[in-house]
Every structure is written in structure tokens, then in C-alpha cells.
Amino acid sequence: MSDNNRPGILPNQSIETLIAQGSILSEDRFDADQVQPASLDLRLGSRCWRVRASFLPGRHTVAERIRDVAMHELDLSKGAVLERGCVYIAELQESLALPPGVSARANPKSSTGRVDVFVRLLSDRGPAFDDVAEGYAGPTYIEIAPQTFSVLVRRGTRLNQLRLKRGAPERLRIENVGVDLSDGIAGFRARRHAGVIDLDFVDGHDPRNFWEPLLPRGGELLLDPGEFYILASKQAVEIPVLEAAEMTPIDPSVGEFRVHYAGFFDPGFGTDEAHGKGSRGVLEVRSHETPFILEDGQTVARLVYEPLTERPTRLYGDLGSHYQRQGLKLSKHFRAWGE
């Protein structure tokens, strides 16, 4: 890692140094595109368990808790369908031996959130989902709970990502994110009882079998309770090359809905330097128990910006991305609407 000891998010070259030092380990060799500008994609291992309840490890290891709640085991080396409405725990190929002063936080990948698959990282004796304590040494697991669609996964499928940080980075600023409900197709609502989505099959699904387009009138959209929506931000999102951001839900007192999944935005997203000027944030929205009317431009989430320890040697989109320069866009698993 850099000799710079200031608090911040670690860029790709620092993550690669941690891998070389053995602070991040993997059962298989790391993929060439696994390290992103300020995050590391995590890959499913071979073993997965259908469990009767979610849990936090607390005083236990994850393996100990799995023995208490497992219903049956699945072999992901052969591929397996994870059914909507069920909860699963899977081993990840990556394990950690973090050095002093370095902690981590996980989040769903963009493509995971956009198909309404709820995922959270688990670590041994961890008191919270997704947060990995400074200096943690041990395996990592992922909780997977498909909400709308059943999904096909296999060993190596990437559902979440890890952001590593030194110390406690300051929050540089917080920006409100509004929703775009202007004329034309302003979003998509998930169809219930659709088929299975293969999460490794890119551009391979007809979106009309899984989504219906939304055509708001007068800049308003009525959210139905329990339905899942894909919408876009009103404003363009730009992440400077020395910063990273995380999208967080707004205070629930502001409205009876929430942006269902937090999300990482890597440095360079939406910037002219990375050829992404004008990129919008895609929002995964779910209403609560009561119908709720959204208005064009209404705040639905917030972007929290934090500094990197140093400039990354790669920017978002350098390895290819389905989401740079995006407007309203479904996940990479679907062909473009109307094709």
C-alpha cells in the first residue's frame, strides 16, 4: 500500500498490494477484472445452504450458526436456482487477514440490486452485516435473499463487492438524489411470477418477460406496496477521481418508500475524464405498507462522498462497464428495451 497513512478508501493499487501480501486470499486465482478502482468483487464458492432464518453471528462463527439453521445444502459448482422468498447462506472464495488499521465494508453489486436480490456479507463473530472489523482474519460468507425473481448462480458468480479503508475517512459532503419522472418511459416495474434469471448470462434475457415500462402522467408515479421499481436520478452523478461515494437511503420519515439497496460508486463514474459525462444513478425503489406518490425531482436517496488515500491507477469504466454513461438502465442481464 501507499506510504500515505491518511484515512481514506483504498484504491485499486492498494487492494492489489493487499492481495500480494496475503491480506486478501482466494481459493481460486483472482480474475483480471476483479479489482475495481476502489473495490473488490467477491465470488461465490461451492457450498450454499438454504436456511430457515437470517442471523448475525454475534459470539459465534458463521459455520456454527449455519449448523443451527441450515435446511439443506446446495452444490454451486454444478449451478443452482435460488428461489424467490427464500434465504440462503453461501461461502465466498475470498477470505481476509486484514492488517492493523484496515477495515472493510461490503455492498451489493449494481447488477445484483437491479434484479432485487438482497445480499449481505457475514464475517465470523461480526455484530453487523456488511461491516468487517479492523484487522479481521477469517472467512467471508454472503446471505442471499431473492425478493422478486428466482436466480441461477454458480461458483464464481459475483453478487457483492468489498470496499477497504484505512482508519475512519471523513465525510466530505452529502448530496441529495432526486428521481426523474419526466415524460416517456421513466422506469420499470418488476413482473411477478417471471422466469429464472441466470446471473452470469449477460444481455441474454428479454426484458419484456420480466419488466413492464412506466409512463408517469404529470410528473407523478404511484408506488404500489410491495412492488419493485427501477428508476433513474434526476441529476447526473459525477464521482471525482480522488473520491468514492455510497448511495444511502433517506430518513424514512420523508416518505413511505426507500431505495432498497445501498450502492458503491467508484472514482471516475460519470466524469468527463473517464468518458462518462452525464451518467445517471439508477435507483431500486420499493414502497412500504401504504401506496405512495412520488413526484418528479423528489429526493429519494443521498450520496455520501469519502476521500481515497491516493489517486487510483484505473478509473471506473477502464475495464469496461455496462453502466458508464447510463441513463435509465436495467441490469446487464437484459437486452436493451425494444430489441
Rank of each mutant, 00 (worst) to 15 (best):
N5T: 10
S23E: 09
S23D: 13
D28H: 12
F30G: 09
S39V: 04
L40D: 09
S46R: 14
C48S: 12
V51H: 14
F55S: 05
A70K: 13
M71H: 06
H72C: 11
L74Q: 08
S77Q: 15
R84L: 04
P99H: 06
A104C: 08
A106D: 06
K109L: 10
S110P: 00
G113E: 03
V117H: 06
V119K: 03
R125Y: 00
V132W: 05
I142G: 02
R158P: 06
L164G: 07
P169S: 06
H193I: 00
F201H: 06
G204F: 12
L214C: 06
G218W: 12
E220K: 13
A232I: 00
E243A: 11
A244C: 11
A245P: 04
I250S: 02
D251C: 03
S253Q: 07
E256K: 06
Y261R: 04
G268C: 13
G268P: 05
F269M: 08
D272T: 03
A274Y: 02
E284D: 11
R286M: 15
T299N: 10
L303E: 13
P307I: 11
T313M: 12
R314V: 15
D318E: 15
L319M: 15
Q324R: 10
K329S: 09
F334C: 09
R335S: 03
W337M: 07
